[in-house]
Design a protein around this nucleic acid. Structure first.
Lengths: 315, 315
DNA sequence: ATAGATGCAAACCCTTTGCACATTA
DNA sequence: TAATGTGCAAAGGGTTTGCATCTAT
């Protein structure tokens, strides 16, 4: 796993000089979690150590943004806040206007929609900001809001596993149906084999999930961090729908190919977004698996087409 | 249709006094489209007329926000912008960092997801901000970006009709399938009748759409303003999927009820959000229609249950 | 030696405010 | 006349900058 130091080292821009003060600022900044206003960082640094001027801190923040170490965010407070990018994927925010706390979440569905919309408008998106302003659970109840810890690796792994499991289930259903509906003996066998594989993987994933929860029984009580619906399992669900409306063997294989391709792409892309972590691992492993299925289906489709082309002559 | 003057009149807070200068500011502000920074408004007012002080303009902007006439938005520029709420539903933004233009869009899908996420986190949302930063089509091509006009009523009507048509199509498919699958004679007839109605409405909507496009042939060239996918037609699509996997008559009716309820709710809620306009009209008419179907299905379901309760005795 | 980093204070931008004066109900 | 709106200038918060001074390479 990459350390914070390596992370900074790697991003340090060429031509820049090493400076003790800047290092201090960066290190203190990276130690924090959440969204720091410049002034809060000034306080932290005053407390910690040196006589570092406000200007240097502002300049270092700008430097970190340029280097990709930090991100400047605007919660509409009339000042900017900064969050670091180290082990911290792009995300969205729920912002409580009462206690001023902010809560992060991911949503592959919303990301997919944003991409579609940008595409439709021929807009090339660089960065998206989604902030939901309102009142958090604690403030609604009039309770003293407790500081929520930032989402951990384990939490991310939990949600990654949930997505993978849901997708696997949906894939299993797809292949089971496909096997039942396919007439071609060889095609049927392929679908059966894939269904069996999905079943097996499903078992593996569920075991892994239970293990994770066992290691931290509190884990399941945490609210969802990574939201998903359509983007992952919707791919197979749509395929199943088409299947069930009636298709021939060739179409069934094509639908399977489309599903696996979509699924592979989703898991690969999503996995690549994250820093080293169990969740990333899960996504990438899953992507590989889908890739194998995809290859198998493509081979099978080619074979079927060949046999069909040869077939009529014999008839 | 409500005029801008009535709009302000209606929202003018009690206890406030009429003031010529404030009126001037409000009128000039409402004449603009897009997102004005306070300073830009000051310029506009300087040019137009009076010797009105900066402070008054700031105070009036605050007054408009409190009254619900304007909305303060933050594009992360370090200053606020204001957009008026008159004939201007809640929307999201694509913001070009090159030409600094911003483009609006609606997405019922994203709104639905936001609500789900807030719900899951027990967060009570008041306002959501979604900004996609990047580069617009013109700037990507190195062209001089042309000022895009704000979406018109006709554009909104076009997209409302597209959603209604897509939903209608999906409903038609659902009822056609349901009619084919239903064994109970009376139930079959109900589904057939609904399918016929959907067919007829579909014709009406398509005629209306053609009319709209005929009135303004440019209309179809405009990019999508109201994005939708799941929220509207996905409701029936999911129903069809269930149907096709095999259900009995009673379940079929229940699925129909669920679909119509979802669809009714969606169109009603979405329609209610807008100022008087053809698009609003379309949504509300559609909601009414779905309501009728819903009632019919519920009556039919009750009847079926009764007959089934009576049936076994006769057997 | 020289480009780059730092400190200090002043400048900056956008916005709000105190206070005297003008207006409206 | 009492409450509200306006103008002016000053203050305010957050951020950036000019310039002299250091400090790494």
């Amino acid at each position: 796993m990459q350390s914070a130091k390596e992370f900074v080292e790697q991003l340090r821009p060429a031509g820049g000089r090493r400076s003790g003060k800047r290092d201090v600022i960066v290190q203190i900044f990276l130690r924090q979690e959440g969204h720091l206003a410049a002034d809060e960082l000034v306080e932290l640094i005053r407390a910690e150590d040196a006589r570092i001027s406000r200007a240097t801190i502002y300049r270092t923040l700008q430097w970190m943004v340029d280097a990709g170490i930090a991100q400047k965010v605007d919660f509409g407070e009339g000042r900017f806040r900064y969050e670091h990018s180290y082990r911290h994927p792009r995300h969205f925010h729920l912002i409580c206007k009462t206690c001023n706390q902010s809560f992060e979440f991911l949503s592959s569905d919303i990301e997919a929609l944003i991409e579609e919309i940008a595409e439709a408008r021929r807009f090339s998106p660089r960065q998206s900001v989604l902030q939901i302003y309102g009142t958090c659970e604690d403030c609604q109840a009039g309770r003293q809001p407790e500081r929520i810890a930032a989402p951990t690796d384990a939490l991310f792994a939990r949600d990654a596993l949930r997505i993978a499991i849901a997708t696997e289930r949906s894939g299993l259903e797809f292949y089971t149906r496909a096997a039942a509906l396919t007439k071609d003996a060889r095609g049927k066998k392929v679908f059966q084999r894939l269904a069996e594989e999905e079943q097996e993987h499903l078992g593996t994933l569920e075991r892994r999930y239970r293990q994770l929860v066992k290691a931290d029984p509190e884990l399941e009580a945490h609210p969802t961090f990574l939201f998903f619906k359509g983007a992952a399992n919707g791919i197979f669900a749509a395929g199943t729908e088409e299947l069930v409306k009636g298709v021939d063997d060739r179409q069934a294989l094509l639908i399977g190919i489309r599903c696996e391709r979509g699924s592979h792409k989703f898991f690969k892309r999503y996995g690549e977004r994250f820093e080293e972590s169990e969740g990333k691992q899960i996504f990438l492993e899953f992507a590989d698996e889908e890739r194998e299925h995809l290859d198998l289906l493509i081979r099978e489709y080619r074979s079927l087409v060949e046999r069909q082309a040869a077939g009529p002559k014999r008839r």
